[in-house]
Simulated scan of single mutants.
Amino acid sequence: MNALHTFKTINYTKLTNSGTFTFAAPSNIALVKYWGKKQNQIPANPSLSFTLKNCKTITKLQYQPKAEKNISFDLLFEGQVKESFRPKIQKYFERIQDLCPYILDYHFKIDTQNTFPHSSGIASSASGMAALSATIIALEKLVNPNQTEAFYLQKASLLARLGSGSACRSIKGNIVVWGETDSIENSSDLFGVTFPYEVNNIFNNYQDTILLVDKGEKQVSSTVGHDLMHNHPFAERRFKQAHENIQQLKDILKTGNLTEFIALVESEALTLHAMMMTSKPYFILMKPNTLEIINEIWKFRESTKIPVCFTLDAGANVHVLYPEKYKISVTEFITNTLAKHCQNNQFIHDEMGNGAENVS
């Protein structure tokens, strides 16, 4: 808890005026997966992600000073009251109030929207909690302006983690590591850090096309899935493997060896789902069309030698990853071959981005 204490705001000024901040924060896609957590949203293993650019949440936070000290907010989604989101935001404010006691001095009106279709099966908790945390830190900069930019970035990532673990990887781009691991200098369980090493040019502006296989609600939530790792028979080996894979990926990102990149990324995706299928109780989030797409990608890669690969989140949708220079060929392949396996032929083109930004 001592490390956390350094992020607690102690001296701050109460503002007398009201104001507004608007931040946009993107989703991210983990290449080395986080699955399993300890108390207070601490990851059981490190993860590494590409920050995305187009799939983002835009959050407008209005603050109004008030006399009584308590958590007070109104919540809108795309301009409409959204009561179903309220418990998650309430819990978030409860988790951060010790670190950010100034939030009790204001009534907040939060209006949030996504650039991607709501309930499209793209995790919006990462982008949503990153955007909200960025607005809270913008307020902190006014009430406590004496810290460094590095401190504010770390604290924004820490707050985002307390809202949704993977959200800490959406504050800053474009490759982010979360979770302490020997191979990444200054890596931390508390917040995400920008990958600090050389990256081969082949990964510049890497593409991610998200195939919307199933837009329905998952039968098993990620929160439940994480909890099932506590007594999982393969958990310890999996956690060790994540450290090993980050070490390998560090080298791959430097050399640009796409054959090794593909093997590691696809293996990580299948390992994530293998952990679900071997937990107690076991469950399957992939759909028949997920497997159809994977097989089509393997066939296409074999016949064309184009280095396209897939990864999966905790769901049925498929992220198709490929270098920018193959965009025309891969887009044609997706449109002609893969789209028919998607719900309503829907897919979303995305690429690497730089994290949260002030769009006030």
Rank of each mutant, 00 (worst) to 15 (best):
G165D: 05
G165S: 01
G165P: 01
G165K: 00
G165T: 00
G165A: 06
G165R: 04
S166Y: 10
A167T: 01
A167C: 11
A167S: 10
A167G: 01
A167M: 05
A167I: 09
A167E: 03
A167Q: 02
A167D: 03
A167N: 02
A167F: 00
C168A: 02
C168E: 07
C168V: 03
R169M: 12
R169Q: 12
R169S: 11
S170Q: 04
S170G: 06
S170W: 10
I171N: 12
I171W: 11
I171A: 09
K172P: 11
K172E: 15
K172G: 11
K172C: 14
K172N: 14
G173L: 13
G173A: 13
G173M: 10
N174I: 13
N174Y: 13
I175N: 01
I175Q: 08
I175P: 09
V176P: 05
W178V: 05
W178I: 03
G179V: 07
G179I: 07
G179P: 02
G179Y: 01
G179S: 12
G179E: 09
G179D: 02
G179H: 09
E180R: 14
E180V: 13
E180M: 08
E180L: 11
E180S: 14
T181Y: 09
T181A: 15
T181P: 10
D182Y: 12
D182K: 14
D182I: 13
S183I: 11
I184C: 01
I184R: 07
I184E: 00
I184A: 08
E185W: 11
E185T: 12
E185V: 13
E185H: 13
N186R: 05
N186K: 05
N186M: 08
S187G: 05
S187Q: 09
S187M: 00
S187W: 00
S188K: 00
S188P: 04
S188V: 07
D189A: 10
D189L: 08
D189F: 03
D189M: 00
D189K: 01
D189R: 04
L190D: 05
L190T: 00
L190I: 11
L190G: 01
L190C: 04
L190M: 04
F191C: 07
F191A: 08
G192Q: 06
G192M: 01
G192T: 01
V193N: 09
V193F: 09
T194E: 15
T194W: 03
T194I: 10
T194A: 05
T194V: 12
